[in-house]
Design a binder for these strands. Structure first.
Length: 461
RNA sequence: GGCUCCUUCGUCUAGUGGUUAGGACCUCGGGUUUUCAUCCCGGUAACAGGGGUUCAAGUCCCCUAGGAGUCACCA
């Protein structure tokens, strides 16, 4: 069975790069009818917070990525790690190192001064005798001096030369296990078969291989996926704006669009751009992931978002609007309104804004628009217009159109002469959905009310 | 600096020795449109550079350049 996992450390919000890693892992598991697990790497008590964990979970919920089995928290697994550390110690595959931090620093400086790579010199590797007093030892693993080859599903064969590898620490002087150690143990214990993670972890892979070998465990298959770059071509970090997933939600993006956008970053299936989640699951294979890093492209995301928006039903959109506090339930023209708006909007926030522009009486009139469109005879026309509404059928946009055409003919004017002034008096601005739709949604009483208000405003000037 | 990885239009990518190097976003032009948009049609635009191998190279090899990642008792 293919089992994948996502293993964030809860040090803040979930960022875009992490989400993409998670999606890839999720898709690959589902493609194989396998499992997608979540492990919270909260061993660094100083930097972790429960709040961050909640935030990560909230993001997964929004993205509709389902996590199989119970969430694993590394902070609750000290006993397990200790057991394996002791095992390695007993088997002489690991040893206590009594080098102080100061001594280690001095060693590093000395090596760097000579232009060498800083690595542990193996001082306590075969140490016998009385250890120095007053020093709590760390545990180091015995790393055999040989090249280590990682057979990566994305990068291919990557060889790390022997001189790059030293006896690294698997347990700190306070007894707590280090990152590379717990990752290896947990992936094994969770039966993770395929590790898909950022290629910033590639250099950790040989260390983990060493741990697997020492313990006699089979190593999982690795897929080190390239980083996501920001618009400037630098590694996307938490400091980049728009790196927090939930910011996208707040800005009116849909999880469908974000997922679609992210899955196409570094991966593709021919010329296909639009993927439903089912299609992604069907087509995704981590072997097809690109080797090179890719830069984020907000415009394409926006395009995808508008694409998805157009495909949503009005009921669906209403529900999503409800989630951000916009309720349309008591408006019987809801379909006309949303049909009209969703064609031109790109985000949920766009819809919210336009809905509010239409449903709420304008509080002011755009001066530039007024100047351009309100001529000497315009107020007369507007007055005539509202006086001509009696008995007209405004239940559908087509009725509004029929009536307006009649009005144009009787006044012998062209449509812009009345459409733009109507927009201004009804909405305060000239950018709006089709005028017939606006008229229909508002209804005659509201039209009369707003036009009168505008007329009074103009007369009062 | 050591090690590792990467390099096709501005961006995301297709491409597995023979293609007029394709698609998408952006951009530009045109059309539809009462406005803003949408939508439709069309255009501009790329194999980092240099050597090989081969009848033939974006595709294979080498070098150079550029970019990225990593070098903790962080994860």
């Amino acid at each position: 069975m293919v089992i994948t996992r996502f293993a964030p450390s809860p040090t803040g919000f979930l960022h875009i790069g992490g989400v993409r890693t998670a999606i890839f892992s999720y898709l690959w598991a589902k493609n194989n009818n396998g499992k997608f697990l979540l492990r919270i790497e909260d061993t660094d008590k100083k930097r972790n917070s429960d709040e961050a964990t909640k935030e990560i979970l909230r993001a997964f919920k929004w993205l509709n990525i389902e996590i199989n089995d119970d969430i694993v928290y590394q902070s609750q697994r000290d006993d397990i790690y200790t057991k394996y550390i002791n095992q390695l110690l007993e088997e002489k595959k690991a040893y206590h190192c009594y080098m102080s931090k100061e001594e280690l620093d001095a060693l590093r400086e000395e090596q760097q001064a000579k232009g060498e790579r800083s690595r542990y010199n193996g001082k306590y590797r075969d140490f016998i005798g009385e250890p120095p007093k007053g020093i709590e030892p760390v545990v180091r693993i015995k790393a055999e001096a040989r090249d280590i080859t990682i057979n990566d599903g994305v990068k291919g064969e990557v060889v790390f030369p022997a001189d790059q590898i030293d006896d690294f620490i698997i347990a700190r002087s306070d007894g707590s296990p280090t990152y590379n150690f717990v990752v290896a143990i947990d992936d094994y214990l969770m039966k993770v078969s395929d590790v898909i993670r950022g290629d910033d972890h590639l250099s950790n892979a040989p260390k983990q291989m060493l741990i697997y070998e020492a313990l006699g465990f089979d190593a999982p298959k690795f897929f080190h996926i390239p980083m996501i770059l920001n618009e400037k071509g630098k590694k996307l970090s938490k400091r980049d704006n728009a790196s927090n997933v939930m910011d996208y939600k707040d800005e009116g993006y849909f999880s469908e669009a974000l997922l679609n956008y992210l899955v196409r970053l570094g991966w593709s299936s021919g010329d296909q751009e639009i993927f439903s989640i089912e299609m992604m699951i069907d087509k995704f294979n981590p072997n097809d992931i690109n080797k090179s890093a890719s830069a984020i492209n907000p415009e394409k995301l926006l395009w995808l978002n508008s694409h998805y928006l157009k495909s949503f039903s009005n009921a669906d959109i209403s529900e999503r609007l409800g989630e951000i506090g916009v309720f349309l339930n008591n408006n019987d023209k809801i379909d006309i309104l949303l049909d009209s708006i969703k064609e031109r909007a790109k985000t949920l926030l766009d819809i919210k804004e336009t809905v509010s522009n239409i449903l709420n009486e304008p509080s002011e009139y755009n001066a530039k628009a007024v100047k351009k469109n309100i001529k000497d005879n315009t107020l007369d026309l507007l007055e005539k217009y509202i006086n001509s509404l009696e008995g007209e059928d405004f239940s559908l946009p087509s009725g509004c159109e029929t009536h307006l055409n009649k009005f144009l003919e009787s006044e012998n004017i062209k449509i812009p002469q009345i459409a733009q002034p109507l927009r201004i008096s009804l909405l305060g601005i000239t950018n709006s959905p089709a005028i017939y739709d606006v008229l229909c949604v508002l209804g005659k009483d509201e039209i009369i009310k707003r036009v009168n208000k505008f007329l009074e405003y103009k007369k009062g000037e």
